[in-house]
Design a protein around this nucleic acid. Structure first.
Lengths: 219, 219
DNA sequence: CGTTTCCTGACAATGCGCTGAACGGCGAAA
DNA sequence: TTTCGCCGTTCAGCGCATTGTCAGGAAACG
């Protein structure tokens, strides 16, 4: 999914981009309205993430222009403002959703999924895996033989990463970064333990071990 | 059938009223939100026809207020806007149907008939949940083992959100937005308290806790 | 066969969620 | 108006699921 992020706070922009890239999305970033207009001219994006407080103009005007030109690209507004009137103005300008800073990056993912699902008209983004396991990434739910399986937040964080990249082998280090925020080297076998717990819940065939490298989920 | 038409475009309002009167319906008309509130206080209407672009306030707020007070009066939204986000917001606020201007008067009649049929005659599609709990989303009624359960407006606001997305885990943040117009950050455990009360009324198995994330009701 | 890598049962500490209780506000009734 | 009762909200303490760690065993590799 191609995403254009329009945001002038570089720290936040980096965090968002990293998170989305880690989810396998393609993210372009621009820090101003003029920049964004140029990007939009050159590429067709699937979703627009738009900050309202931009240095060189109102973000809402950018959105209104887009809509005036007939673009239907889904747009999620990011803002520090917390006023109902702003929200209404945003939605009237053609926004699809609205996130107030500070927001949780996982919530951003969920909203992105919801918005894009809305537009594709496909209500069931279920991923099917081996062993009768189905995963709804946006809804954070897992079925095994049709029955709901409960995953704890750590278990889901790990599994989520693997399901998003089916067929790819992920190193333990990569998976560790899904568990802990950033950096923090850990010299334990936490990932192994969680894989073990996941296998008990989901069956042994879903997660495959690649000895000396890491783990993999088949597509 | 008593119908309240809330519409500030007088030409359109007249046309609608004439058409409905010709069909033998009783139509009252108000052109503003305050006016509508007064009318609603005095009369029990069978259907509410609600324009969203009113001069003195958002029509949606009127609808939300009604629902918050426990009213189940069917509501059809009339609007010039055709954005998916509006539609979703409208339905979330408790609307039953949605007509985009310009619309055909006969289509309006048909929808009116459909909505009122839904409410009067045969019961609506009941959603069945665990523990002998049935939910009528449109009629906002809940049965447990065949007995009516009374929910307060906040309880319903929360439960409604969850039942509409069975199988999906909703974050406390998302659920908070059902309680308040626009919750910025949660500094309290209000959602937990309401879940606790709902469980007392509906049984413990209906709402499942997903620790570290939120809550879910099974499909 | 030895070595390396991975699996998994057990366990203690932590932090999250649950719930009883109390407070304040608002509308209805008197 | 005052009173009463219901509803929404906050708070604090308790109980327990979750989590990270370790150690012994199993499996894969040379």
């Amino acid at each position: 999914m191609r995403i254009l992020l329009v945001e002038d706070e570089l720290m936040l922009a980096d965090a968002v981009r990293d998170h989305l890239l880690a989810s396998g999305e393609a993210v372009d970033h621009s820090a101003s309205v003029v920049d964004a207009e140029i990007m939009l001219r050159g590429t067709n994006y699937d979703v627009l993430l738009l900050d309202l407080n931009l240095p060189d103009g109102k973000g809402l005007d950018l959105l209104r222009d887009l809509r005036r030109k007939g673009s239907a690209t889904p747009c999620i507004i990011l803002t520090a403002q917390d006023q109902i009137s702003d929200r209404i103005e945003g939605l009237n300008a053609g926004a699809d959703d609205y996130l107030v800073k500070p927001f949780d990056l996982n919530e951003l993912s969920a909203r992105l999924a919801a918005v894009s699902r809305r537009y594709s008209g496909n209500p069931n983004p279920f991923v099917e895996l081996e062993g009768g396991v189905e995963v709804d990434l946006a809804g954070r739910s897992v079925l095994r033989d049709g029955e709901q399986i409960d995953l704890t937040s750590r278990e889901w964080a790990l599994f989520d990463q693997m399901v998003k990249r089916p067929g790819q082998t992920l190193s333990k280090r990569q998976l560790e970064e899904a568990l802990y925020e950033f950096g923090a080297e850990i010299e334990s076998n936490t990932v192994e333990v969680y894989v073990s717990r996941l296998r008990r819940k989901l069956g042994r065939d879903v997660i495959k071990t690649v000895r000396g490298v890491g783990y993999r989920v088949e597509g």
